[in-house]
Nucleic acid binder design. Structure first.
Length: 559
RNA sequence: GGCCCGUUGGAGAAGCGGCUUAACUCAUAUCCCUUUCAAGGAUACAUUCACGGGUUCGAACCCCGUACGGGUCACCA
């Protein structure tokens, strides 16, 4: 008689460590009551997805606010899909969002006593437990080829039974150990499958921290736990790792709900308690009236790098994500007059159950609000580092005279309701262009859209009067009354009401007078506060711009 | 297709059987203020909670069915 032990030995001779030894090597963590041990466990198969950032962010928050531990594990058991360097890129990007793990796979190497934190380096650990299951008869080698599996599936489809490698359809479950030994020695390729005791007509109930109690059919599939390449599947790796790393709350995407019964059964078979689960809703997008998952291929905003490239401050994205996670966060920000989500008590129970639609408008709103609170001095460093990567000419302009840019960024910031011009760093370049002579000149040459009701000769003389009579270096109200005086002399109505009542008595309203002035100085009908603009440009440049327009309009009026 | 989860305004949502003639935020529109823009202020925007039925004196809230949306059914995670 060939026993299970012999088969296990034949299959996995390299697994020599005793399970107990591993248990001892990774002891229970001693943490305060209620502390969460969470993790982010990405597959290094490409860029950081916005949904992954959401998941990582919340796991991180949960650990931090409970005084627990947040670690990062790389799930690279699918060697075919692993992309070299993407794990490093992932953690580097997370770090830009301030999501830095307490332990695990980190930018400067591994840290923590529960490693290794890369599944591809944990092969021996998994095998120890696979071997244990083998010995206990809870797992067995399966010699099916892809064609064998396809055939089984075809039979199942034809007879309309539930597809999958289960019960009577689990071909190699029924092999005798003698047969197994023979085939192993013969060198037939194999995988290890878990022998499920489940019955899909029965339901398992488990508690989800977000959704409450869930009743789902038991697993009855003999899932593969060790692949032919010697690495475990997700299911097995999750169970072993989260047990050994002493995770107590697994937060992951809701796509995992249907396979949770598999995990529960594996935990039981190994004699372990399972962690708590929180299945997070997935971020969606509206596409032709249909909701669908944010797609890597179709949606630029599915990649976190998109936001970085556009120059949204990372903080703003996180504020937005927190607002979809807990909608009461928004009320909290108003009450506390703060966007500091670190101080906000995030709650799994308050999460909504279905996936939120990604709303760029709302992100923009938060971003504007956030940046409005920053002074020029706070904005300069992140702006410069963004520009260095994404807008070299802007970066150069800033470097040449940082304090000039700082003054531009500070326009109308010094008040109770600060100006909200910028939602992202890429807004700064276009918005500030007219302050720079080399960028402004082409605008000048092109001509300005002055109101055609004014003759060019009139414009010319009005601007000349402004150039000569305008006050510089004085505070705004003084400056403005100076302008008003000039406008009155020129025949503009100084009060809008007057103009509205008797338009015939005036050449225009103060609005018109100011618009001509604004156009000459900034090149646009819309601009930030003119007084502040002028004081940043300085008397010389302002005069130069005015006189240039005086000349130009005089010239064209003669033609 | 089977199973699971869900369905409140354009978006995020509050609500958990009478206090809802459905809060709040974003977006949109109009008006006010105003030297433009931004900001700010005011107002409008679900005659009703996917639909149908039931329970109840009373339902967005409880039950059943239907529809719709999403997820999942791999040696991928």
């Amino acid at each position: 008689m060939v026993g299970n032990d012999e088969i296990a030995e034949l299959l996995l001779p390299e697994a020599k460590v005793a399970p107990e030894e591993l248990e001892a090597r990774y002891p229970e963590r001693s943490l305060p009551e209620g502390a969460y041990v969470t993790r982010f466990a990405p597959s290094p198969t490409g860029f950081l997805h916005t949904g992954s950032l959401f998941t990582a962010f919340l796991a991180h928050r949960l650990a931090q606010q409970s005084g627990g531990v947040f670690f990062l594990r790389i799930e690279d058991t699918d060697t075919k899909r692993t992309i070299a360097g993407s794990a490093e890129e992932l953690i580097e990007q997370l770090a830009r969002f301030g999501i830095i793990a307490d332990e695990g796979f980190l930018p400067d190497g591994e840290k923590g006593a529960y490693g290794p934190y890369r599944q591809s380096e944990r092969g021996d650990i998994y095998k120890v437990f696979v071997k244990k299951l083998l010995k206990e008869g809870k797992a067995y080698p399966d010699f099916c080829t892809a064609e064998d599996l396809a055939r089984i599936r075809a039979v199942q489809e034809a007879s309309k039974v539930i597809p999958g490698y289960w019960g009577p359809y689990a071909r190699d479950r029924k092999l005798t150990n003698e047969e197994r030994k023979e085939r192993i020695l013969r060198g037939d390729p194999w995988v290890i499958r878990f022998r499920s005791e489940g019955n899909h007509d029965r339901k398992v109930r488990f508690h989800d921290e977000i959704r409450g109690d869930l009743d789902i059919a038991e697993n009855d599939i003999d899932v593969v736990i060790l692949k032919s390449d010697g690495l475990p599947t997700y299911h097995f790796a999750h169970v072993v790792d989260d047990h050994l790393m002493r995770t107590n709350l697994v937060s992951r995407g809701e796509e995992w709900i249907p396979s949770t019964p598999v995990h529960l059964e594996l935990f039981r078979a190994l004699g372990w308690e399972h962690p708590r689960y929180a299945h997070l809703p997935v971020i969606m997008k509206l596409d032709h009236g249909n909701k669908r998952k944010l797609s890597k291929r179709k949606d630029p905003e599915a990649a976190v790098s998109y936001f970085l490239k556009e120059g949204y401050p990372p903080e703003a994205l996180l504020v937005y994500l927190m607002s979809i996670a807990n909608s009461n966060f928004e009320e909290w920000t108003e009450k506390e007059d703060s966007f500091d989500f670190r101080a906000f008590p995030f709650s799994l129970g308050k999460m909504s159950l279905d996936g939120a639609l990604f709303d760029l408008d709302k992100l923009t709103f938060f971003s504007r609000e956030l940046l409005a609170k920053w002074r020029g001095g706070d904005m300069l460093p992140p702006l410069l580092s963004w520009a260095s990567e994404n807008d070299p000419s802007l970066a150069e302009r800033i470097r040449k005279d940082p304090s000039y840019m700082e003054r531009i960024l500070d326009i109308e910031k010094d008040r109770a309701n600060p100006r909200k011009d910028y939602a992202k760093w890429s807004d700064v370049g276009p918005a500030s262009a007219f302050f720079y002579r080399d960028l402004f000149e082409p605008l000048e040459e092109r001509g300005f859209p002055y109101d055609p009701k004014y003759e060019l000769s009139f414009i010319s003389s009005w601007l000349q009067e402004c150039a000569d009579g305008m006050l510089y270096g004085v505070e705004e109200s003084l400056w403005w009354s100076g302008v008003k005086e000039l406008a009155a002399k020129r025949g503009f109505a100084t009060r809008n009401k007057d103009y509205k009542e008797r338009p015939g008595d005036y050449v225009g309203s103060l609005v018109d007078a100011a618009e001509l002035l604004r156009l000459a100085i900034t090149g646009a009908k819309r601009s930030p506060n003119l007084h502040e603009v002028i004081s940043i440009l300085g008397k010389e440049e302002t005069r130069r711009r005015l006189l240039h327009e005086v000349r130009r309009s005089a010239d064209s009026s003669q033609e």
